[in-house]
């Protein structure tokens, strides 16, 4: 920043213009990289204003069993029952409950979460416990 202030006016203008042109490219690239490097799960659509994460329920198995999402940010879960039995996606801690017949899917909005761990599971096929980790995004 101090180096930027030391620049002369025309140089400042050129620098700013270049920065604004490159910004969209670099931010998308940086976000994806940040998500990967900081250990966050990649959303299905990285460009959407509200990120969506995918969960598949398959006869008692949860795919994936762990999700890492940024804390204090609203996001969506797109849950699909790809198995051969009915399932009920549930999480008391995230206030979610959705009965899903075979082949059905649902998108649920999760309200901003504090940092911490939250369970999700298939109530019709108990046993496996999924874990959603809400982590503070690196500044």
């Amino acid at each position: 920043m101090t180096r930027f202030l030391q620049l002369k006016m025309p140089e400042k203008v050129v620098f700013c213009v270049a920065l604004t042109c490159l910004a969209p490219l670099s931010i998308t690239g940086a976000q994806a990289q940040d998500a990967a490097t900081a250990g966050f799960t990649l959303p299905v659509d990285p460009d959407a204003s509200i990120p969506t994460y995918k969960i598949e329920l398959k006869d008692g198995a949860l795919l994936p069993e762990t999700l890492v999402v940024p804390a204090k940010t609203r996001f969506k879960l797109h849950v699909t029952n790809v198995g051969t039995k009915p399932s009920e996606f549930e999480s008391n801690q995230m206030r979610l409950e959705e009965v899903l017949f075979m082949g059905m899917d649902a998108t649920m909005v999760v309200t901003p979460l504090d940092t911490g761990e939250y369970d999700y599971f298939d109530e019709f096929q108990p046993g496996v416990m999924g874990k959603l980790v809400a982590k503070a995004a690196a500044q």
Binding site: L96, M108, V109, T111, P112
Partner: peptide, 19 residues
């Protein structure tokens, strides 16, 4: 259900969601 299905489009104050 009201909060996560119907009020999710609104930006409620952050403390509402605090654990």
């Amino acid at each position: 259900k009201l909060l996560s299905k119907h009020l999710s489009a609104f930006d409620l104050p952050g403390w509402v969601y605090a654990t």
